[in-house]
């Protein structure tokens, strides 16, 4: 019943009829087509360039968010303060099948947010009350420090709009002074410099300022959400403005929109692992029974080689 139109062995070198073909000419034409297309698209549509955020611009635009974040760094409640590896040992990192790959690898980029983001940069300051506040912070036991910072962070969060609060019950210790000094330093632009040059005078690494910025409660993430860049908004494949983004990441982005990934604390490790498995399926698809039969079951090849099949059936 099978209509065998040809008995070509695909592993043998072709010895049937051929047609003229000019590989070099084909490439040159293809390159010219692409060059004209790219130059024209670039001229017509340009490309996005939303200005980078600095700690200075953040502290000026949303000072309350900034001071809440700074107090949170001292209290150890921000994302990076409670992150775990590769930054610190505050948590175990995301788990898959009971294993945390991050913990296995360990701390490689050591960051103690209270020290790295607040205390160390403030040491540059020559301001006497600030220096006294640093000394008071450093000489207090851990438990006392956390108590001060947590109380102040909670009070700031409760108020919502304040950039500083009076210590009426004497429970914040040196924290208000530290946070207020850091805000002033950030507004002056000094904190951007201090965080990027803390490891080297010629910085190429922006881990500290970016981690601090990403710890922010609302400012940075609201700007991103407004541009549909949030992870739950298919943000991975979106771009600022109306430009097309990395649409080839659609499948990676998709998993973050559905359960169980959407609501999982381990979403990243689960999605990355799943994509790894799916990528292997694509790589080894020709060896996988079932999947490799799809092109036979849905005969798109009838269209691709329609001329060839037509002439074969005639002969």
């Amino acid at each position: 019943m099978s209509r065998r139109l040809s008995t070509v062995d695909p592993s043998k070198k072709w010895s049937g009829p051929t047609r003229k073909y000019d590989l070099v000419k084909e490439f040159v034409i293809a390159f010219l087509v692409i060059a004209v297309a790219a130059l024209t698209l670039a001229g017509l549509f340009s490309s996005p360039d939303e200005k980078a955020i600095t700690l200075q611009s953040w502290s000026k635009a949303a000072p309350a968010d900034f001071v809440q974040t700074a107090a949170g760094e001292l209290a150890g409640t921000t994302t990076s303060a409670s992150y775990g590896p590769p930054y610190n040992n505050a948590a175990d990192g995301q788990k898959i099948l009971g294993i945390s790959p991050a913990k296995v690898v360990g701390v490689h980029i050591p960051i103690n947010p209270a020290q790295s983001f607040v205390i160390e940069p403030l040491k540059i300051s020559a301001d006497v009350p600030t220096r006294a506040a640093i000394d008071a912070w450093n000489s207090a036991p851990e438990k006392v420090r956390t108590g001060w910072a947590t109380a102040y962070a909670d009070a700031l969060a409760k108020d919502g709009k304040a950039t500083s609060l009076a210590d009426t019950k004497n429970e914040y210790g040196p924290v208000p002074t530290l946070v207020t000094s850091l805000l002033a330093m950030a507004k002056s632009g000094g904190l951007d410099g201090a965080l990027t040059t803390s490891d080297t005078n010629m910085p190429t690494n922006f881990t500290k300022p970016l981690l601090f910025l990403a710890d922010g409660g609302t400012y940075f993430s609201d700007l991103a959400s407004a541009q549909h860049l949030g992870g739950d908004q298919w943000g991975v494949m979106n771009e600022t403005g109306s430009w097309p983004g990395q649409s080839w990441l659609w499948l990676y982005s998709f998993w973050y929109q559905i359960d169980p990934f959407k609501s999982s604390e381990d979403a990243d490790v689960l999605v990355m692992t799943l994509m790894g498995v799916l990528s292997l399926l694509l790589v080894f698809l020709p060896l996988i029974p079932g999947l490799r039969k799809i092109p036979y079951l849905i005969p798109v090849h009838r269209l691709i080689w329609k001329k060839w099949y037509r002439r074969s059936s005639k002969s």
């Binding site: 340009s46 549909h228 979106n238 109306s242 430009w243 659609w250």
Partner: peptide, 26 residues
């Protein structure tokens, strides 16, 4: 170097169907 530019520097339009959401550009 910007000839006949079509300005895309404005919030994108999004098409949403169930869990799917895609920008007009994509």
């Amino acid at each position: 170097m910007r000839f006949l530019e079509i300005n895309l520097n404005h919030p994108a339009h999004y098409f949403t169907f169930g869990p799917f959401s895609v920008s007009a550009g994509n």
